[in-house]
Nucleic acid binder design. Structure first.
Lengths: 341, 341
DNA sequence: TGTATTAAGGCAATCGATTGCATATATAAA
DNA sequence: TTTATATATGCAATCGATTGCCTTAATACA
């Protein structure tokens, strides 16, 4: 009793049938009669039977585990996506192993390896900023393990992916700033060649172009996009003495840094300089003034990602067609970018 | 080759020895000669052998997985602790399954069950706010699975635990406010009977008492401590018209809400009202003004928790003595609680 | 020289569930 | 009645690694 041991053999014995039958009954195999199934299920309950997933995994080769790899769980966006994935996975009786690469390439490679070793049935990943080689992911594909990417993706891998339309988000937020009368818009971006920053930069540029505002490379600041980097970038701009009337940062953290520096320099937001970020991190809503940003639709992204993933998992070796889903971001306009009315 | 299949049998075959020997060699068993070990290791590398943890787990009963259960990974404190745990676990060749209860009791119960089903070798948990029954954890203990708690703990379970000195943190921050001249200090706390809020309340009360300042229940606001709740609490206080010159909130989020409301009411922080929170969430450092708070020493807590856990894991059924580690918190004084000098 | 130890491996069972193939009734078609 | 066809279940191998016990050979001790 206490031992929490009951196996299918125990059930079989009590019922005077074999373990095979029990196994099939439990898995709702059509070859077993309804009556037997009922008895088995009843006895299982009675003995407080808990299936041993390990044994099942060994034999069937399916661990019912899926690995989710994110740069960091400590970001609203990622943790929300993870939550969406978890919800769907749990419904389907899959367990999720969350692991973090901490934006570190080495760690990312190791982690993928670790997931493989843990025999996950598939991997859902968002790649790190510093990742520029994809052999670790190719290894996953070579092993025939389902892989899909979300948000931070790459074209070097032939896999399905789910992203938001970063280009559109950036275009809209830039256009919004222009509509507010801004003409000299600073842009914070990353030197890393990952898709999201590239697309946002493109959106920024096109919005300017469409408004006939000349691009000025002096207004582009590259950095790692953390809060401190945002501070540095802002200081650089001030030091250079270029004129500007807005900042659109590809990261909420960096724009927060910029806001601090502006405040220290007694430059008023939004009166003198308008600000906009990207990501809709919760803190953007409770700064003074609240910061305009772009919501990345983390919840839908989590769900869509999970759905796409499980479709792939079901189809197994069948369908090969990879698929890219693009979700629409949402512009969240707040005080930091608005003219006083 | 491509199949990524190599097992210990393959290695054995190539070397003309048995799988037992290979297994022992790989596990550095003293019964195997150094020479054989070398050969085995070399061949393993050559065949690109990857141990099948599932098989190993089934036979040995050790999955090398540990479950970490937190209310939410989306909080700096928890994600930092998790990171500390991960680091140590990985060093010891354990994999960590992070799971979240989302402060939901049902979900917490299910999740513990899921971890058990995944055959984790042990569980490290921080309990949800709404948890008031602990049968799910007792089940873990009954199964003889190592369990330890951190931060959000309970005395109803005889397990080792790691916490910070919430009492001391609250005492110090309250004393700090008193030292700044405050005499009417509002306190935000939770109606939930979990240890952290109880202790913080106690620290607050004792600090007042020691300074001969009368306690006033009108100054205590109970809520769920999210940002919105902080807003509501602050508005309640203002509506009640009680006089106050400071707010000490047991949560950074709630104090943020309070700050917003004060701003909306044109009440100046820190001139008219001083503010302090608890938790040292990153955003407290970049609000205007930055908010005084108490750092919970998440990194050390993660490491200590992991160390305590693995000691327990090693000692197995031996040592039973549970142990409570109390870390010192750190008062982080920022502008929100300081008089202009 | 004979017996006790130690060292180095081998053998085979085992962990618990799954599954291809075989078997035994029962029902249906001829 | 006989032969095909389901239907329901049993048998036994299997997944890959681990481990208790046994065997052999070599070294040590009397």
């Amino acid at each position: 009793m206490k031992k929490g041991k009951a196996t299918i053999h125990d059930i079989a014995e009590k019922l005077n049938i074999t373990a095979s039958t029990v196994s099939r009954a439990l898995n709702d195999n059509p070859r077993i009669s309804e009556n037997t199934k009922k008895q088995v299920i009843k006895m299982a309950k009675q003995l407080n039977y808990q299936p041993n997933h390990i044994a099942s995994a060994l034999r069937s080769g399916k661990s019912k585990l899926i690995g989710v790899l994110v740069p960091t769980a400590n970001r609203n966006f990622f943790s929300s996506v993870v939550r969406g994935i978890e919800e769907i996975a749990n419904e389907l009786d899959y367990k999720v192993i969350i692991s973090q690469s901490y934006e570190d390439f080495e760690k990312e490679v190791q982690t993928v390896d670790a997931l493989l070793n843990a025999r996950v049935d598939g991997i859902i990943a968002s790649i790190g900023k510093n990742t520029d080689s994809f052999d670790h992911f190719k290894k996953v594909l070579d092993k025939g393990i389902p892989l899909i990417l979300f948000d931070r993706i790459t074209n070097e891998l032939d896999v399905s992916q789910v992203v938001i339309d970063d280009y559109l988000g950036a275009y809209e937020v830039t256009k919004h700033l222009i509509d507010q009368g801004c003409k000299r818009i600073v842009h914070f971006t990353s030197p890393k060649k990952i898709n999201i920053y590239r697309e946002r930069l493109r959106g920024y540029e096109d919005a300017l172009r469409d408004a006939q505002i000349p691009l000025d490379s002096d207004l582009i600041e590259e950095s790692n996009m953390q809060l401190e980097d945002g501070r540095t970038s802002m200081e650089n701009i001030l030091r250079k003495g270029v004129s500007f009337d807005a900042v659109f940062s590809s990261s909420d953290y960096a724009v927060m840094g910029a806001m601090q520096v502006l405040r220290e320099h007694k430059i008023s937001v939004p009166d003198q300089v308008k600000l906009a970020g990207f990501g809709n991190e919760p803190f953007t809503s409770f700064t003074a003034p609240p910061i305009t940003t772009v919501d990345q639709k983390s919840i839908p992204m989590g769900r869509v990602t999970a759905e796409t993933f499980f479709e792939l998992l079901k189809s197994e070796n069948k369908k090969k067609a990879t698929h890219k889903t693009v979700l629409k971001p949402e512009l969240i306009i707040r005080e930091s970018s608005l003219n006083k009315s």
